[in-house]
Nucleic acid binder design. Structure first.
Length: 209
DNA sequence: AAACGAGGTTCCT
DNA sequence: AGGAACCTCGTTT
C-alpha cells in the first residue's frame, strides 16, 4: 500500500506514505487540532502514518462547503468539514496535543532539516498522488506552472487535470501546492484563498533570501 | 480584457 | 455511460 520516498535537501524533507482514497478513509483514525500559524489559524489532521491534512479556518472563498452542503460552514466547523468531506468514512478525533508537534515543526523552517523527515500520509487516487509527490520536489522560493508540471509527469496537455489534482491536495503548505502558478505567472487559484497563496509565497521568498 | 474551445481526471447521476 | 466541475492554456474577438 505504501510506497516511500525521500526528497532532496533543498526542499522540505518529508517521508510520504501513499494510500488509496478509494475506501474514503474507512478504517483510519484521523486526529485533528486547531493551531495558530503565520497565515491564520490552521487545522491539522494526522493518521498513525503522518500528517494527512493541513488547512486554514478563515477561508472565505473556500470552494464547496457552504454551496454543496447548504449549511453555513465558517470557522472551525467549516475547516473540519473541509477535511471530513475528503475521507467521509474515517473516524475523526480531536487531539490537539498530538497535532501540535507536527504543526510547530511545519511552520518553523529552522527545524525542517533537524531530525528525521516529517512523516506525511498522502491519501488520493494514483494520479493525485503522482502530482502531489511532484509538488514536494519544488524548492521553497521557486514556482512552476501547471503546464510544466503536466509535461514533467509525461502528460503534455494535461495542465487542467494537474490543476484539478493540485487543488485537491489535502496537505497544503507542507505539500507546496502554492508554488504552482498559471502560465502567465498569475496566481490563478488557491483552495484556501488567493490572498493566502501570495502571502505564503512572499513569506518563502523572504525566508530563502 | 474578456470570451471561447479543447483538454485530463474525477465525481456525480 | 454521460455530464459537470476543476487552482489551465492558447487563441481569438
Amino acid at each position: 500500500m505504501a510506497d516511500l520516498f525521500e526528497v532532496s535537501k533543498r526542499v522540505f524533507p518529508v517521508r510520504c506514505a501513499a494510500l488509496s482514497s478509494a475506501d474514503a478513509g474507512a478504517g483510519l483514525t484521523f486526529r485533528f487540532g486547531f493551531h495558530p500559524s503565520p497565515f491564520g489559524e490552521a487545522i491539522a489532521v494526522e493518521t498513525a502514518a503522518g500528517l494527512a491534512g493541513l488547512g486554514w479556518v478563515d477561508a472565505k472563498d473556500r470552494a464547496g462547503t457552504a454551496a454543496t452542503t447548504g449549511k453555513a460552514a465558517g470557522g472551525r466547523d467549516g475547516a473540519l468539514a473541509d477535511m471530513t468531506r475528503r475521507w467521509p468514512r474515517g473516524l475523526f478525533v480531536e487531539d490537539v496535543a498530538r497535532t501540535a508537534r507536527l504543526v510547530a515543526r511545519a511552520f518553523d523552517p529552522g527545524t525542517w532539516h533537524a531530525g528525521p523527515p516529517l512523516p506525511v500520509t498522502l491519501i488520493g487516487t494514483p494520479f493525485e498522488i503522482e502530482v502531489w509527490q511532484a509538488l514536494t520536489l519544488i524548492p521553497p522560493g521557486e514556482t512552476t506552472t501547471y503546464g510544466v508540471l503536466a509535461q514533467r509527469l509525461g502528460r503534455p496537455g494535461g495542465a487542467r487535470a494537474v490543476g484539478a489534482a493540485v487543488g485537491r491536495n489535502p496537505v497544503s503548505f507542507v505539500v507546496p501546492c502554492h508554488r504552482v502558478v498559471g502560465a502567465s505567472g498569475a496566481l490563478t487559484g488557491y483552495h484556501w484563498g488567493i490572498g493566502r497563496k501570495s502571502a505564503i509565497l512572499a513569506w518563502e521568498a523572504q525566508q530563502t533570501s
